[in-house]
């Protein structure tokens, strides 16, 4: 009889603890390694590119730094692995890095079929066109019969085909494996226009001899939400990556910056107190310490700071916030509350 009661109690204990799983295996591995492994692009200005001193800079890079800061309290504990567009998913699936932060478009087929999970959108992009100013073209609709250079192995080729097909326009696509050849072919007149995500066009324009001679057309022909991706097999790790991104966005919304984060710890605002771990134990429930968001914001800055520093007014790219403004300012950046 006593044994049966004990068994029932044990069973009840198991059943009433449905959500508890052990700590994330990826997090354990990262902690054991002592650094975060982050897959980035081979070089896209503003997103991930090594600077003159060989230090990686960019929006995608800074996100990994923020993640490292949230985990270790040290934004430098991260190793970057450049991955080509072609191998990025295979390398993530096979565990060559812990997070893929590489201007990667979140699409249904990638999310559903490739065994990976997108943590959110760090940059709302869209595919556009760049043409030489001397062609005097004002709209992509005038590109009938044009030669268009692009990268192979991305969603870009498909969007291009869809756009021209739906507008009943003719075109010729010339698809290169690497970015530098795309720009070189455009520069030597092989094609009339170049197409990729608009952020990429701004970056490529800077590498041309005379950037002012080229215009980026207003049309955006696709939705390209770029975001960090993780392996689907570890949902808890996905939570850590997702909420680090949300913390950066919430911090901007609540006015918490890298400069004032220490004073903000004394703020009476309950939303700020929860975000910074003064109230509640949100960090611990993810397997981190409660001041995870403070560490990330203090060392890397909030979303707005990261944006302006890498692609916005503080950078040579000078991209407007546009779709990437906070929802309160007419943009799309919106993070669920820390509650």
């Amino acid at each position: 009889m006593r044994i049966r009661v004990a068994a029932l109690a044990f069973l009840a204990a198991i059943l009433t603890q449905p959500a508890f799983a052990g700590p994330s295996p990826t997090l354990q591995k990262v902690l054991k390694n002592g650094y975060l492994r982050c897959g980035v692009s081979e070089g896209l200005q503003g997103f991930s590119t090594p600077d003159a001193k060989g230090r990686w800079t960019g929006l995608d890079v800074d996100f990994c730094r923020a993640l490292a800061a949230a985990i270790f309290g040290d934004a430098q504990k991260v190793r970057f692995t450049p991955a080509s567009a072609k191998v990025r998913f295979t390398a993530l699936q096979s565990g060559e890095y812990d997070v893929l932060s590489r201007n990667t478009t979140w699409t249904m087929s990638r999310d559903v079929q490739l065994g990976l999970e997108f943590a959110g959108t760090i940059y709302y992009d869209g595919q556009g066109f760049m043409v030489p100013k001397k062609l005097n073209i004002k709209s992509a609709k005038q590109l009938n019969g044009a030669n268009i250079c692009t990268n192979t192995g991305t969603t870009t080729e498909l969007n291009l085909a869809d756009y021209f097909r739906s507008n009943k326009l003719k075109y010729t696509v010339i698809a290169f494996e690497r970015e530098p050849e795309v720009v070189a072919a455009y520069d030597s007149g092989r094609c009339d226009a170049i197409t990729t995500d608009q952020s990429g066009l701004y970056a490529e324009r800077l590498t041309l001899k005379n950037p002012a001679d080229h215009v980026i057309l207003p049309e955006i022909i696709s939705k390209e939400p770029l975001g960090p991706a993780v392996n689907q097999s570890d949902p808890q790790w996905g939570d850590i990556v997702r909420w680090t991104l949300f913390a950066l966005i919430n911090a901007e919304e609540l006015g918490v910056t890298s400069k004032n984060v220490d004073q903000m710890l004394k703020s009476p605002n309950p939303e700020i107190r929860r975000l910074l771990g003064v109230e509640g134990s949100f960090g611990q429930s993810m397997g981190l310490s409660n001041d995870w968001a403070v560490r990330a914001i203090k060392q890397v800055g909030n979303y707005g700071e990261i944006f302006e520093r890498n692609v916005g007014q503080g950078s040579p790219l000078k991209i407007q916030r546009g779709l990437n403004a906070l929802w309160k300012h007419g943009g799309l950046q919106y993070a669920p509350p820390v509650r």
Partner: peptide, 10 residues
């Protein structure tokens, strides 16, 4: 290249 990337059947 392209087919591998679009279809994911490496």
């Amino acid at each position: 290249g392209t087919t591998l990337n679009q279809s994911g059947h490496e």
